[in-house]
Every structure is written in C-alpha cells, then in structure tokens.
Design a protein around this nucleic acid. Structure first.
Lengths: 194, 194, 194, 194
DNA sequence: AATGAATGAGTCTTCATTCAT
DNA sequence: GATGAATGAAGACTCATTCAT
C-alpha cells in the first residue's frame, strides 16, 4: 500500500502546508518537494503527476474526516443528535486545522473539471452520511415525511460548507466549533417562529 | 464610462461563452479575442489584464442579477414573500442562462485569492439583500428574534449556491426554478415537524 | 505561405548551423532561437514543435537540392550523362555546404521513426529521379535490360550516400566533387575488367 | 573478462529486444534491466553507462557477424567468390535476425557523435575485409587495376547497407538473402551492357 | 482606436546514475 | 555481487502582455 509509506504522507502533508501558504497557483512541485524534504523526482515515485497529489490529498484527508464522523455518529441514538454531532465534527475538525480548511474550502476548488469530479467521488461518501440521517429522521417521525432528500442534503451541506468558507475567508476571527448548536437549530427549525 | 462601449460588452459576452465551453484553464485571452471578433491587443484597451476581464464579467453579470432581484423584491410586502421571490429569481435567472451558471458556479472559483476577494466584494451587495430580508422578518415577528444574521445568511446563500452548483454539475437534468418553493419551505420551517 | 516569411528561413538556417556545430542532442530550441535572433516563443509561431523544425529544414534544403538536380539533368541527352550530372550535383551541392552535409548525413539520422518516415517522403522524389535515369538507360539499350530497378537504385543511392557520409566523417580531408567521375565509372562498369 | 559472465550477455540481448521493440528513444535503462531480469543498478556493475551498453552490443553482435564472414570467406579461392559470399552472409545474417537488423540499421544511428565514432571503430574491421577482397581481385587481374579502393569499398558497403536498410524499412516484405546474387552481379559488372 | 507579431518568464516531468542496505 | 529507492539536472512549450505600425 503506497499510503503506508512514510514519504507518501510526508508529501501530502507538505502539499497542504505549501498550498495553504502560497495558494494553488504558486505551489510548484519543487516547492512541495522541498517542504517534504525530498527530491523533485521522488514526488513522481509516489504520485502520477501534480494533480494526483491533490486528488490523493483530498482522498486521504477527507477520508479520515468522514471516517471520524461516521464512527462518532454511530454512537448517537436519533437523527437530531446525529445531525448535531455531524455539524460539531465538521466544524471542529476543520476549525482545528486551518491549513486543511484553506485547502479544501478555497484552493482545491481552483481545479479543472476532471479533478472536480474525482473530488466529488470522495464527497459522495459524506453526502451519503447526511442522507442516512435525513432518512432516519423521517422514519423516527421527527422530520417532515415529504422532505426531498436531495434538497435537504443540499441545504445541510451548503450551509456547513458556506459557514466554513466564510470563517476561512474572514481569517478565522471567530470560533468555528461554537457555531454548531446554532446552525443545528436553524436547520432543524428554520427561520419561522411557528 | 467604458462599459457603455460596444466592444466592452462583446468581450465580456465572449468570455462567458469561451469559459463555459472550454473551462477556465483553457480560456486564453487569444481565444476570447477571437470569439469577440477583436484583436488580442484590443482586449487591453478595455481591460487592464486578464483578471480584469473576469472581475468585470462578474460585476456586470452579477450586477444585473442582483439589481433585478432588488427591484422585484421591493414589490413584495413581507419577508417570507421576499425570500421566496429572491429564491425564485436566483434559480430562474441562472436556470435560464446555463453558460453564466457554469462560469459563476464552477469556473470562476478556479481563480486566485485576489480575484476571489474582488468577487466577494460584488457578492456583498447580494448578501445585504439577504440580510435585509432577515431583519425585516425579525421585525415582522415571523422569524425568531434571536437569529444570528450571519449564520442565517450563510444558510440561505449556502443552500441556494449548493443547489445551483449541484444542478450545474448534474448537467441540468431537472428544472432549477421548480425547486424554489420547496427550498423556501425548508428554509422557513426547517426539518422538524414542529 | 509561411516559408516566404523571412523568420521561417532565418530559423531554419540557424537550425542547420546549430545542429552542425553542437550535434542534434545539444541543439536546444533556445540555442536555435538565439542564433536566429528571435525569442524562443517565436519559433512556435512558425513551427509546430522542435521536430517540425527538422522536418521543415529537410524539406526546404533537400527540396532545393533535388530541384536543382532535376533541372540540370533535363538538359542532358542520355542516361549516362544524366547519371554523371546527378552524381556531380549531389557531391558538389553537399561538398559546398559542410554544415548541411553534417546535418543530413549524420545528425538528422538521429531521429525517431516518425521523423524518419517524413524524411523518406522527401527522399522519394530523389529516388524517382534515379529510377527515371535507370529506365532511360535501359530503353536506350546502354544498361542491361533485366536490371532490378530497386536494387540499382539502392546501389546508386547507397554509394553516393556512403561516399558523402565518409567524407563528412573524415572531416572533409579531400574534395568531394572530385570523386564524381570515378564513382560514375564504377557504377557504370562495376569492378570487373570485362 | 566481463563478457563471459552470463548477465553481461543477458543485458545485451535484452537491449537488442527492447530497442527493436520500442525504438532508441523509448529504451530506458530501467526497461532494459527489467527485460534482462536484473535490477537497474546491476546494469552499472557490467557497463560504465548507458552508451557503453550500446557500444558493447555493437561490438558483441557485429564482432560475431564479422568473424563469421572472415571465416567463411577464407574458404573461397578468388575475389569474386569471396565477394559473393560476403554479400550472402551480410544479407543472411541480418535477414535471419530482424531485431538486430532494426537496431543496427535504424536505431543505433540515432546516437550521438561519440557513440558513432566508436561504432565506426568496430566497422573498420569489416571494411578491412572488403578492402582485402578488392586488393585480391586486382591482383588476380579480374578487377580493374586502377580502382580507388576507398571508393570501391564505399560502393560495396553503401550498396549492402542501403539494401538492408530498405528491407528493414519496407518491413521485410521480401527475402533479403535472395538479393545476394543480383547485387553481386551489379557490383561486378555495373550498369553498362559492355 | 485597432492590430497581431513578437516576446520571454516560468514549470512539470523524465530518466541516467548513485549508494545505503 | 545485487538491489531499487532516491536523486536532481535539464528543456520543450505556453500564453499574458507589449508595441510598432
């Protein structure tokens, strides 16, 4: 397995740092290699090309991100609690790793169509977690039974994503994890007083 | 002012088409010039540099987009109706202009930090419209009074943005404008049955 | 017509010089551009890629080489005289242009299969001239009637080509054009006394 | 000496196969090592560098090629028969080993000046064999006494070389060895009927 | 104002060679 | 002797921008 090799991880971690610091377009392969402490050519022993570093980075980091959420959510007993836990973990994991947040929220979106589709493959796993919470909420009878799962998923993901992006762009002036309860409340009860 | 000159508009419209067709990274200045029917050098009589084309494009197209929303919303009498109208217009305007939707939702996000900040300047005007609806809803007593305006704005904008992006990436297989009422309902009442 | 543009010729002439001086593998595009007095990028306004410089060079120079032979031969009245003239011109043209001889005899052969096939297309025109002389000699009754045209052509071209290559590799220690009569004699009468 | 070691031969044979299959420029050391069943680094225990593989290959294969010709020719009693035998063996040996023919006629010519000179060193032994046949023919009184040995050698070698190259490039559509008698006849008697 | 030929800085990737094991 | 992971120098090509006409 290539991702058990130490240099694979070294290079990915270096890529996160370099991209977060310099932005995607100023992140030359040679800069990543230098930060990782390897020769330029070594990169190509572990990655097919530059884009493959980014795809692998996303797969690796988001894979862990989602796995953690899946595990913790399994311990909650109802949809509402699961949603709250998902929001908490979404915010706390990215809130605790600013460089990763910068890369996932801003820099990695500067990719071409092909990379975007590969990234979406990874995201599907996360969206399935959201879907399962929605379905569970409907079955529990606490969510409206006629909800359109796709739209709800887009509301939840869109809200979380926009919140994190806003936090990143505002240079992290407030605590991201602290927003979880309020966002949860909004998603559950909406704007209306009734 | 420069944007009343016909070539200014020609070039911007050409840029939207070229970027939508070829993607951001394959949209060279020479390609835009060719599509606009002008010489490469002419571009630089109307725009400072390539990035300025993109900023101007966004200002021009989003300016009209937002102006239309501001006008139509003014005719509505309460926050709920205004929000529905905003969602309707957001979806219908982008749903009716696929190339523009591709450019704003996907391609323009592949830009560098500087361009992204300029784009955000334009978006602020839109976010203010959303904020004013939220405030109005609170004053009317139909929205919760303790709502965090920033979070609500992020929920609304994030949901709309994610919905349009999803529609673009799914190759517009469904009608975007048809989603408006349901999305409105979700934002107003949330997931909960109560 | 691109080859009427002065820069096209400038670049080709620079390429001949640079390749003759440095050898194929040390002839970077930037070196050719410098010798031609143009920017690196200008090369790509006139040639598709580096290989295209070589193909064009061969087409241009060998085209003139062959055209000259075709013209002069037309003025001779019989196959023997035509063959002598062909040999004379082959030797005198390359003998008078050492850099071109180095490039055609040595450096251009260091090319990949694709380039080799394109070069052969150009050579076909020359081989046809040889074939027509052979046919004419047979019809005149001065060459053996049962001659295998392909083999004879290979003998003639192979002899001339090897003679020029040898001259180039021996660093042009003798006069190439002076060999013409003797080579002609050999090809006409062979080794045998009878 | 090194060339009695089995891996030396393994690597050379692998090089012939790899170069014939992939062409000179796609024949990386690692590909040759893989085909030979050794590690990349092992190559450098037997060869100074990549070029040394090619020189050794040529020395080894052409050495055998020439040795065979020397031996068989010694059994012939006159220059004409010796020349015929030389042509026969030249054609039959290469005709029976297409990969070797591809490598010697096409791929190895894509080498730099230094390698080319080393290859010529090997060829000198072959050219001496040709020279000795010419001298013998003159002494026997069957070849013209005033023949220029260098030119005759170039005619003979040039003709054979061009014939084999043509056969290789035409993808071996005819039998090479079958051409021997006719080529011999041409070289002995030339084109002329007299 | 308009043109478009010319510029040249910038970077990903390959691969012969090394050397610690 | 044998390995193969690691090295790092080297170069073709692109494209935003300029400027003489």
């Amino acid at each position: 397995m290539k991702n058990t090799k130490p240099k694979f991880k070294q290079i990915i971690d270096a890529a996160v740092e370099v991209i977060a610091e310099n932005g995607y377009h100023s992140s030359q392969v040679s800069k990543i290699a230098k930060k990782a402490g390897v020769a330029d050519g070594t990169i190509y022993l572990y990655f097919k090309n530059k884009e493959d570093i980014l795809v692998s980075l996303f797969q690796d980091k988001m894979g862990q991100f989602i796995a953690r959420i899946e595990t913790e959510i399994a311990e909650k007993n109802n949809a509402e609690d699961k949603l709250l836990e998902l929001i908490r973990l979404h915010f706390s994991q990215l809130g605790a790793n600013v460089p990763l947040a910068i890369v996932t929220q801003l820099e990695l979106r500067q990719s071409n169509q092909e990379l975007r589709h590969k990234i979406n493959e990874v995201l599907k796993r996360y969206l399935k977690v959201i879907d399962s919470i929605i379905d569970e909420g409907i079955q529990e009878g606490v969510f409206h039974s006629e909800l359109n799962t796709r739209l709800v998923r887009q509301m939840i993901f869109g809200t979380l994503d926009e919140t994190v992006t806003n936090w990143v762009m505002k240079e992290q002036k407030y605590n991201l994890a602290d927003q979880a309860a309020e966002v949860h409340q909004l998603l559950i009860n909406g704007l209306s007083k009734q």
